[in-house]
């Protein structure tokens, strides 16, 4: 069998709580570009129990084709059942590329599928491209702590596979006028043959805004002087409905908990807007936020490194600037209620 027999770009459509997860929609956006470049089809693979209705959503977000495995056996994600479905589908239609969100489910499934096929799998990709003529997937990811990027290829095997980090590629706007094909698939799989059972799901509600999911982050650094000074960050974040982030030294000083830490040893974030207030901009911080949509830096020190990595910078005293911003935003938000999402 030659590589020419493998055609099409696939995206694993992870479903959670009855909806397609955001990263799957983002991958349809990225997959669309790859498929167009290769002049081939973009397909979603949808697996679950009662998920057929979501197939159209996948089309609205860019898919030409959706393969649907809808059966009670797929009620909960299990490596064994989902893998069997995806392997059967791959065997039948032979895609050139399969993309998964780098979620715990996506990574679990991709690892198992890659071993069985077998093929190469690149983890936690942040940039994707494809060679137009050969179809070679160029999957790039930060390596060695994020200071350098490595491009990883899979030359001798098909399909090529990658897990892709959430929020590194853009979803297309939802377009309900798009049309595509929905194909129902099924496999022979009996519950008694499956070796794992999900006995119970326990939800533990998390109150705090997760910084890795926030659209807007207001992050503060040592420049705020003290835990009392850092309150300004909380106040501003509250007003604009943002999550609170922090630099490493602030976390180490105990001003705020570790799950707020942005950077190499903290969380990588890609919000739409990132405010860096009183943050000097050490490399280890920058790698954790550099892909944010709009980066605004406020710092007293005109030589602060953060000004090299921001889109807009203000040299000034945070304690003067931020209270004014809070006032202005309150005013603007009164009129433009859709301006920021309340969390």
């Amino acid at each position: 069998m030659s590589f020419e027999d493998y055609r099409g770009v696939w995206v694993f459509m992870e479903v959670k709580d009855g909806a397609i997860v955001p990263v799957a929609k983002e991958l349809l956006g990225a997959g669309r570009q790859l498929a167009d470049k290769r002049k081939t089809e973009l397909a979603g693979v949808l697996i679950g129990d009662g998920v057929s209705a979501l197939a159209e959503e996948a089309i609205y977000y860019g898919a030409d084709q959706v393969y649907v495995y809808d059966a009670p056996i797929f009620k909960h994600y299990r490596t064994e059942t989902y893998m069997r479905a995806l392997l059967a589908c791959t065997e039948k239609y032979k895609p050139e590329i399969i993309l998964y969100g780098a979620t715990s489910t996506g990574k679990d499934l991709a690892s198992a599928v890659a071993t069985d096929l077998p093929t190469g799998l690149t983890a936690d990709t942040t940039q994707l491209d494809v060679e137009e003529d050969t179809g070679l997937l160029l999957a790039s990811r930060p390596a060695f702590g994020g200071n350098i990027m490595a491009t990883i290829l899979c030359k001798k095997y098909r399909p090529q596979m990658a897990t892709v980090r959430p929020k590194v590629v853009r979803a297309l706007p939802r377009d309900a006028s798009r049309i595509g094909t929905i194909t129902r698939e099924s496999i022979e799989l009996r519950e008694e043959d499956v070796r794992t059972k999900v006995l119970e799901i326990v939800r533990q509600t998390v109150q705090r805004v997760r910084i890795d999911e926030a659209d807007i982050i207001v992050a503060g650094g040592k420049g705020l002087g003290s835990p009392a000074g850092f309150q300004l960050i909380h106040e501003f974040a509250d007003v604009i409905g943002a999550a609170v982030g922090a630099s490493r030294d602030v976390v180490e000083a105990g001003w705020i908990g570790h799950h707020h830490q942005v950077g190499q040893t903290g969380v990588t974030v890609t919000p739409k807007i990132y405010f860096a207030i009183g943050i000097s901009g050490a490399i280890q911080h920058i790698v954790g936020m550099q892909n944010s949509g709009l980066i605004i830096a406020i710092n007293k020190d005109p030589g602060a490194l953060i000004f090299q990595s921001c889109h807009y910078g203000i040299v000034g005293d945070a304690f003067e600037i931020v209270p004014m911003l809070i006032e202005q935003f309150k005013h603007a938000l009164g009129k433009e209620s859709s301006y920021a999402r309340k969390v």
Binding site: A143, I148, I152, L153, G313, E320
Partner: peptide, 25 residues
Amino acid sequence: SPTIVSSVWAPQKPQGGQMLDGKAA
């Protein structure tokens, strides 16, 4: 190993932001 590292490259150095000058207001 099906995967190979084809190249290692440094991400583009940031260009530096546009500074907003003037008084605080």
